[in-house]
Amino acid sequence: MTEATARTSEGTVLSPFSKMLWRHHGEPGMLIPLLQAAQDAYGYIPSLAIEQIAEVTAIPASEVFGVITFYKQFRLLPLGKYVLRTCKGTACHVSGAELIAQTVEDELGIYPDETTKDGLFTYMVVACLGCCSLAPVVMIGDQAYGRLTPEKVRKIIKQYRRKKEQAA
């Protein structure tokens, strides 16, 4: 990682995270936006980023860590290429989300919060995606898929696998 050098050497391309670090002048309430920027840049929050954030904000690293673990959005491990979220909101629950989740687990061969061996999918279960009228819903990346059946879920996952094969 080049974060430390990126902050000092001019002309190095800065990620939005580095820029935020660079420009940070102790404005209050910047911890969470900094963590969000780090996660955007790396897909997770590497330990080096925790150190750097602690340094510029003068918040102890232990406290930064406490904030990271409080919020579900933050991750300390790298994510797969696609994040697959199955919705377990009320509407999805009464419309068969359990079966959809089961199908995803079978198809990917992993449990929630795990990443497939090929690094393609990270699977998460979330409380509500807000697309309740399309229940049951699964979201892959920013794309939501609604009115799902186990069969449709399998098809969608296969599409993503094919996309990867074509790209390879």
Partner: peptide, 11 residues
Amino acid sequence: DEGDPGAFMDR
């Protein structure tokens, strides 16, 4: 911060 599962008015 509309968090209730099953609610999407604010969104």
